[in-house]
Write a protein that binds this DNA or RNA. Structure first.
Lengths: 119, 119
DNA sequence: CTTGTATTTTAGTTTAATCTAAATTAATTT
DNA sequence: AAATTAATTTAGATTAAACTAAAATACAAG
């Protein structure tokens, strides 16, 4: 079960990282997760949850009509600590908001780097 | 300079991970890197090198008409160790080959998971 | 069995990433 | 200067990822 590549793929998107953060310390229902991300549909959240679960980054249990998701922190090892540092950083939160904003509105304004003086 | 997210973004693609592997232990010219990936054009490799460099995952120096790239292993921290484990694993190499094959040929055959018996 | 609530899945669209081919820049050699 | 070699950049095409809206599934309660 080659999992590492799947893990990296799963961590690639800001959306999935945000979901992971929401279920990092305590389980949440799919609905609660969606409520925390009002800019996407429930369906979109559900698809990302499935990707995270297939990558082994979250697990879930069903109870009544609800499904509770929680992070499988042990699957990330030291990378998990990196994520925690990222989330603890207040500046990071602002950056994330900007990132999601961009994700919503289309491609970046392409801040191209100057081509000269690169030795 | 919030770098972590850029790092995760940069590690998202198998192609960039393969490039990173090639320059992990010793520097390589852009041309040598391209030769190791005969299924893409030099231009494509150059673009990915730029992305890796902008994310701080590789650095480069120009000498004569060549440009030498090498990994900035210190920028990756724990993720670097994860990558090394991945690359040391023989099975992983087969998997990577298959992954690149897929990348080349189009989307996956979509092996859907059965929907029942999920408690 | 019908209604309500929670969630997932499907089909199709939109958005973003990656690639190619060709043009361009840059240094080297003749 | 012209030709050669190495690498980058651009514009446009292709491929893949993410999203939406609607339909489907699942369970609970009346």
């Amino acid at each position: 079960m080659n999992t590492q590549a799947a893990v990296l793929d799963a961590l690639a998107s800001p959306r999935r990282r945000e979901i992971l953060r929401l279920v990092w310390r305590e389980e949440q229902t799919a609905g609660a997760i969606h409520q925390a991300m009002p800019d996407v549909t429930f369906g979109a959240v559900s698809l990302q949850l499935r990707r995270l679960e297939e990558a082994g980054l979250v697990e879930s249990r069903g109870e009544k009509q609800f499904r509770y998701y929680r992070a499988r922190r042990e699957a990330l090892g030291p990378v998990g600590e990196m994520l925690e540092r990222m989330w603890d950083d207040a500046l990071w939160r602002l950056k994330l908001a900007a990132e999601l904003e961009q994700t919503r509105r289309g491609p970046k304004p392409a801040p191209r780097q100057s081509k000269k003086n690169k030795q």
